[in-house]
Structure formats: structure tokens, C-alpha cells
Amino acid sequence: MEKFRAWSDCGGDVESVFSKDELLTDITLYWLTNSIATSTRLYYETMHTEGMLGRFVPGYVGTPTGFASFAKDNFTPPEEWVRRCYRLTRFTEFDRGGHFAALERPHELVTEIREFFRPLRA
């Protein structure tokens, strides 16, 4: 629950963004599948990589890439950093939303994903 409160755009009121059913479902899935450790591995490895930019340097990725930046996410690299590492074709900043954007702002995220892929259809 602490992560939902701290990492979302809820202003300290978790239930203003998430229903109790959503919270309990999500937490239960991690608990029953014993998968919380694997879900946090990326964060651990990122925090133990030297240099902030080094965290985002997988080598250059030439595949068209989109980046959705939600206002209250934990950390969003500057667009310039993303451009150095990826063939960035779309970088969108949102005024609302946090780390759990798919749960917090599903309509905005789905619209953004559709807009990203639309020019790639042909």
C-alpha cells in the first residue's frame, strides 16, 4: 500500500485514484504468486548501476520507440537522454499520473499507445 500512496498521483489519498478492489487484487496477485521479488529486481539493479545515465544505456536501440512521461512517476529521464539511447519517435508528457499509469490513467495511456503505433501500421 505504501508504494501505491508514494508512487501514484493521489495527493496522499490512495482511494482517490484506486478502488479497494483494484488495490486488493493487485496486492493479492503479488502475494499469491510470490512474485514481488522478481517485480522489484529491475529497481534493485538500476539503483546499483554506476552513474545515472548508465542506467539508461542499453546500447542504441534502433526500433521506433515511444516514451510516456507521467507527472508523478518516480523518475523520468529527460527526453535528451532517451534520444541518446533509442530511436525516439514520440515523447509525451502527461500532467497527471504516476508510476502506476496503466491503473491510474488507463484511457490516456491506451490513447497514447494507439497514437504511437498509428503511423507504424503501414
Rank of each mutant, 00 (worst) to 15 (best):
residue 11 G to P: 05
residue 69 S to D: 15
residue 15 E to Y: 15
residue 21 D to E: 15
residue 99 H to T: 02
residue 46 T to D: 10
residue 26 D to A: 10
residue 55 R to T: 10
residue 102 A to W: 07
residue 62 G to D: 14
residue 117 F to A: 09
residue 56 F to Y: 15
residue 25 T to Q: 11
residue 27 I to H: 07
residue 83 R to V: 07
residue 79 E to T: 08
residue 100 F to W: 13
residue 51 G to F: 02
residue 25 T to H: 08
residue 19 S to N: 00
residue 14 V to I: 13
residue 86 Y to I: 09
residue 17 V to R: 12
residue 97 G to I: 07
residue 118 R to N: 11
residue 33 T to D: 01
residue 87 R to H: 12
residue 96 R to N: 04
residue 55 R to S: 03
residue 114 R to Y: 01
residue 52 M to C: 10
residue 24 L to Q: 12
residue 29 L to R: 14
residue 122 A to S: 13
residue 46 T to K: 14
residue 112 E to W: 12
residue 86 Y to D: 06
residue 76 T to E: 13
residue 94 F to Y: 10
residue 94 F to A: 04
residue 62 G to S: 13
residue 32 L to A: 15
residue 34 N to H: 08
residue 98 G to L: 00
residue 19 S to Q: 06
residue 101 A to R: 02
residue 50 E to V: 14
residue 42 L to T: 15
residue 100 F to G: 02
residue 51 G to L: 09
residue 85 C to E: 10
residue 81 W to K: 04
residue 90 R to C: 13
residue 91 F to Q: 03
residue 2 E to C: 00
residue 6 A to W: 01
residue 72 K to N: 12
residue 73 D to P: 09
residue 7 W to H: 13
residue 23 L to M: 11
residue 50 E to M: 13
residue 83 R to G: 05
residue 69 S to L: 10
residue 41 R to W: 01
residue 109 L to A: 05
residue 80 E to I: 07
residue 71 A to E: 10
residue 53 L to G: 06
residue 106 P to F: 02
residue 52 M to N: 11
residue 1 M to T: 13
residue 67 F to I: 05
residue 97 G to W: 06
residue 21 D to Q: 12
residue 13 D to H: 10
residue 113 I to C: 08
residue 40 T to L: 10
residue 35 S to L: 07
residue 59 G to N: 01
residue 67 F to E: 06
residue 57 V to A: 14
residue 119 P to A: 00
residue 17 V to D: 08
residue 1 M to S: 12
residue 65 T to I: 01
residue 12 G to S: 06
residue 91 F to K: 00
residue 44 Y to W: 12
residue 81 W to F: 09
residue 121 R to Y: 08
residue 73 D to E: 14
residue 13 D to G: 05
residue 108 E to K: 08
residue 82 V to G: 00
residue 68 A to I: 05
residue 15 E to T: 14
residue 88 L to G: 06
residue 110 V to S: 04
residue 40 T to H: 03
residue 54 G to Q: 10
residue 98 G to Y: 04
residue 29 L to Y: 07
residue 21 D to N: 09
residue 13 D to A: 06
residue 28 T to N: 09
residue 111 T to Q: 13
residue 80 E to K: 00
residue 95 D to Y: 09
residue 38 T to R: 08
residue 62 G to N: 15
residue 73 D to I: 05
residue 39 S to V: 05
residue 90 R to V: 14
residue 87 R to W: 03
residue 28 T to L: 07
residue 122 A to Y: 09
residue 116 F to T: 09
residue 25 T to I: 03
residue 77 P to V: 15
residue 8 S to P: 02
residue 64 P to L: 07
residue 111 T to W: 07
residue 73 D to M: 01
residue 104 E to Y: 05
residue 22 E to L: 11
residue 26 D to F: 13
residue 28 T to S: 11
residue 120 L to N: 00
residue 58 P to N: 12
residue 5 R to M: 03
residue 104 E to D: 01
residue 69 S to A: 15
residue 51 G to T: 09
residue 66 G to M: 04
residue 117 F to E: 03
residue 120 L to P: 00
residue 7 W to F: 13
residue 71 A to Q: 14
residue 69 S to W: 07
residue 37 A to R: 03
residue 34 N to M: 04
residue 52 M to F: 11
residue 45 E to V: 05
residue 75 F to G: 03
residue 49 T to P: 08
residue 3 K to I: 12
residue 37 A to D: 11
residue 33 T to I: 00
residue 40 T to W: 02
residue 114 R to C: 04
residue 95 D to K: 12
residue 110 V to F: 06
residue 58 P to F: 01
